[in-house]
Design a binder for these strands. Structure first.
Lengths: 348, 348
DNA sequence: CTGTTAGCGCTTTCAT
DNA sequence: ATGAAAGCGCTAACAG
């Protein structure tokens, strides 16, 4: 900038003004400065500006994994809105690891992010986050989850408990009485814990017994879904329907069913959660709970870019039950056997 | 920091030293400073440090989309390696849009990133990037692509052309003579263009005619894959095998085949590219070309964190042909008809 | 309209 | 081992 000033024969202050608020400077000077900057290949230093003005135009975003089409939509939502406001996004993936998440948050704070968008709150980090919010040094937004109402933190989420209850009710309504559940790490993530609670509530209200053997906790990925399904279906009295708390697990479960020669939904129904883009493309397409991941990102970013003192905001979004081919009535067996055989021929 | 200094009754310089290089300070003072910092809830400001030292510990990463399990792996690779070196990652998604990409790169440069990791080079931005590399203001790494050798830019990629040629040869080897191709935006992305070239080369070498009607250009997503397949199979003389230049397109194509009552690979073979985690979970599992996306990210990050003056480095990785159930010999029809019918019953 | 000056939070000589 | 002072690239307040 100094060089630009010298070349344009003005002071650095004028250069700054010409570039950032041209209306304060005479057109001729603006033009001269612009040309000088151009010729020297000068690029503005946003960091220096931030530091001087004691603010920051970066937001930090922590997701469980970057390798998910779902959180990817949230990321896009965040990027689109922040970009409009001239913010950049530093992103990190916790990979479902507490230590990594902690290090990530620490490094984001050292970068002096204006806001922190966190996907969920782990039990371990909850206290810490609350302290951060207190210190008012950064805005905090929790997404994909609706924390207990009294926390005083902004969030953009939906009611995981009631959504899971609705899905379970769908299966109960189809006549299923033994319903298995495959869940992510509920001991770590409130989001997942609430889904499990919704499942239990639905069973309770329908007067069905809760059988802990029917609940399997796994890391949310395809292979784990497959293994979980195998372990469920190997039981003495296997479930007739399985509710996977994420579509990733559901797709894995579907694969396991296929390899075992089970027809879906003829022999066993499978339901997912999230409505990932892939879910409609499975065979059969997967019944799931649609969540507007992009919208979550947009709203979170809107909250994030507000000034530090702005009020806490909460959005609780709706989600939609999307009924597709992977769930069906219990016990219309009979024709199943024959279908089963050809099925095995078809699949690898 | 000033406050910490006051509380510990030392100068700011000592605070800095005590925190960053404790060996230069007496243990007692270090302890006093540490405690003071703790009590005041002081957090280090990495940005200020960067600006003073005239360097930067942030790298910029531009991917086509954040919503892809594949680029997600690359992102993880980058994050893991950069984190080890104390760098943060500002990430953006171009969404296959030139303007957005340009704005993104501009904003990253204003943040004074130490390095820029770019997924591919668009024709439009190639000149610009070359200029950036010349200016030596940031390290540039191109990933997922092997640019023309003479460019003088670091890259971590693989030979898209020869990989596509191998896949096409696989199909030819199975007896296919009419092979369709569904490609991403090859007019924009060299990566995609090379895949198309590989396909053509394979046809040429096998003495098969190139029929432009058999090549469909689409945005790489599921729905477009489905539509592309429909348009290919509606032709008067449809292909007996389809090579989709990404697994996303292949999965979409598979869905289209299913809905049309076509058996895969009985009636038509489908091959993909990338080996996304979902591909093995389709029915039938998809034959594809495996790319080590995580490794690409790791290597790119290693190059990125090197000092500005460090040499240009190039890595050309291998990829593996993974043969699964979606490709098969041409013309073993006959049994197909009957299979077809049950298939229609099964799928929704 | 433009220049001068002070200073953001930190690190690094250079003294002591 | 510690402190004083200069300065990174930029902007805001104040003068002119």
């Amino acid at each position: 900038m100094r060089e630009v000033a010298r070349r344009a024969k003005v002071s650095v202050a004028t250069v700054s003004r010409a570039l950032r608020s041209p209306e304060q400077v005479s057109p001729a000077t603006v033009e001269r400065v612009r040309r000088a900057a151009e010729e020297l290949g000068y690029v503005y230093n946003a960091t220096a500006s931030d530091i001087l003005r004691g603010r920051s135009t970066v937001v930090g975003l922590v997701v469980p994994t970057s390798s998910s089409t779902l959180f990817g939509e949230t990321i896009h939502g965040v990027q689109d809105v922040t970009a409009e406001h001239g913010f950049s996004v530093i992103q990190g993936a916790s990979r479902y690891d507490d230590d990594r998440e902690e290090r990530l948050i620490a490094s984001l704070l050292e970068r002096r992010v204006h806001a922190l968008i966190l996907t969920g709150v782990t039990l371990r980090n909850e206290a810490r986050i609350r302290r951060l919010a207190k210190d008012h040094c950064a805005r905090i937004v929790v997404v994909w989850e609706k924390p207990k109402a009294d926390v005083g933190i902004s969030y953009v989420g939906f009611d995981n408990r009631s959504a899971a209850e609705r899905m379970t009710n769908h299966l109960i309504g189809l006549g299923h009485r033994r319903i298995g559940m495959i869940v992510g790490p509920y001991s770590r993530s409130a989001r997942v814990k609430h889904r499990l609670e919704g499942y239990r509530d639905a069973l309770d209200k329908a007067g069905l017994p809760f059988d802990p053997d029917l609940v399997v906790e796994r890391r949310p990925d395809l292979l784990e879904g497959r293994e979980a399904m195998n372990s469920l279906m190997s039981q003495e009295e296997p479930p007739t329907a399985v509710f996977a708390a994420s579509d990733l697990l559901a797709i894995g479960a579907l694969k396991a069913a296929r390899l075992r020669g089970l027809s879906v939904p003829g022999d066993v129904s499978i339901a997912g959660f999230d409505d990932m883009n892939f879910s409609a493309y499975q065979d059969p397409p997967i019944t799931t709970m649609r969540v507007d991941a992009y919208r979550i990102g947009q709203l979170a970013a809107q909250i994030a870019v507000e000034p530090i003192g702005a009020p806490v905001r909460n959005y609780c979004l709706d989600c939609d039950l999307v009924i597709r081919g992977s769930t069906g009535r219990y016990a219309l067996s009979g024709a199943t056997d024959e279908r089963l055989q050809t099925r095995e021929e078809n699949s690898k």
